[in-house]
Computed example of a mutant assay.
Amino acid sequence: MNVAVFRPDDERLDEAVDLLESLDVTPVPDPMLAVRPSDTAPRQADFVVLTSKTGVELAHEAGWSPGDETVCAIGEPTAATLREYGYDVHIVPDRFSSRGLVATLADRVDGKTVEVARSDHGSDVLTDGLANAGADVHETVLYELVRPEDSGRSAELAAEGGLDGALFTSSLTVEHFLDAAEERGIRTEALEGLEDATVGTIGGPTRDTARERGIRVDVVPDTASFDLLAREAVERLRDGHDEAEV
């Protein structure tokens, strides 16, 4: 069973491939995101929000040195990376998402300055939600996310009917998958191929993007974790495969 994974071509992709192999499926690594740093550090503010491991790494490389700011991580993976680089982490929401962080900060940021440091494709849910809670919000783009030139192997496989599963880890991976298919002139065929596959998305926003673009979504884990996404999708895929053989 072939399962496509779209993580950036770094240790995250290696870990995803290892996990899928441990689940006895064949990974189809097809990175749909590449990082282009801006070499910019987060500004000083009352609250500073980091939303990804990559953002933390690039902020550190750009010389970020927080003072009295309240440092917030959107989830535990981001918090772990902050601690790894020697930063204190003051707030991590129970629900690892933009909505979860807004809910956690809503009663603390009225009249405060909030710096959101992230990629150029961050969701407006976070910035709008904090602004609606009374915060003076500033956003710093730490990096751009672009599609690698050689991406699209998974779209070709889907169009040929050879893709059994696809694991989308952000709205941008959905868009880039379809862009790669469009570039090859196989968008319709790739979408048809996904109809016969088990499709998983890492969270609600990614699910919504997929559905808006005509992709049926079968699996969304309760927690935004690739490990859970992969395990739940493979379990569903295997159950469907077993039923088909009966």
Rank of each mutant, 00 (worst) to 15 (best):
T188N: 14
S154M: 08
E192T: 14
D9E: 13
R95H: 13
G129R: 01
V125C: 01
R12I: 00
M1E: 12
T26D: 14
V137W: 06
S151C: 04
T201I: 06
E175C: 07
P93D: 03
G204Y: 11
V71H: 10
A45K: 02
R216C: 11
P93E: 07
E15P: 01
G129W: 03
T40S: 12
D39P: 01
L126R: 05
A210Y: 03
F226R: 12
S52I: 06
L229P: 06
V28F: 08
L101Q: 03
A16E: 03
G86E: 13
E69G: 01
D136C: 08
D30S: 09
A135S: 08
L142K: 09
R187P: 10
A224D: 06
P77E: 13
Y87R: 03
D68Q: 13
T81W: 00
D9T: 02
D242C: 07
L50M: 13
D179H: 14
M32P: 06
V219F: 10
H241K: 15
A79G: 15
D14R: 15
A155D: 12
R36A: 14
V5Q: 04
K53T: 12
R147T: 12
L20H: 02
E61D: 15
A135T: 07
L145G: 08
T209N: 11
A4F: 08
R147H: 10
V116N: 06
V116H: 10
A4Q: 05
L167N: 02
G200I: 03
E195W: 01
C72Q: 07
G161H: 06
E235D: 15
T206S: 10
P205T: 05
V71Y: 08
G161E: 03
E235H: 10
E245N: 13
D46H: 07
V17E: 10
A197S: 09
T26L: 13
F168N: 03
A59I: 11
M32E: 12
A41W: 09
H90Q: 11
T40V: 15
R83C: 00
T113V: 06
E21D: 12
E11V: 11
A197N: 03
L82D: 01
T104A: 14
N132Y: 01
A79V: 07
A197K: 02
A16H: 00
G165V: 07
V92W: 03
A210H: 05
T169C: 10
E182T: 14
D9C: 04
T140V: 04
R108E: 13
R207A: 11
P8E: 10
D24Y: 12
G161R: 02
H241N: 11
F47R: 00
E195M: 10
L178P: 06
E195L: 10
V114C: 04
E182A: 15
S170D: 04
T140P: 04
V199E: 05
V114S: 05
V5T: 12
H121A: 10
L130D: 05
E149H: 14
L142S: 09
E57Y: 05
G193W: 02
G75Y: 05
S151P: 02
G203T: 07
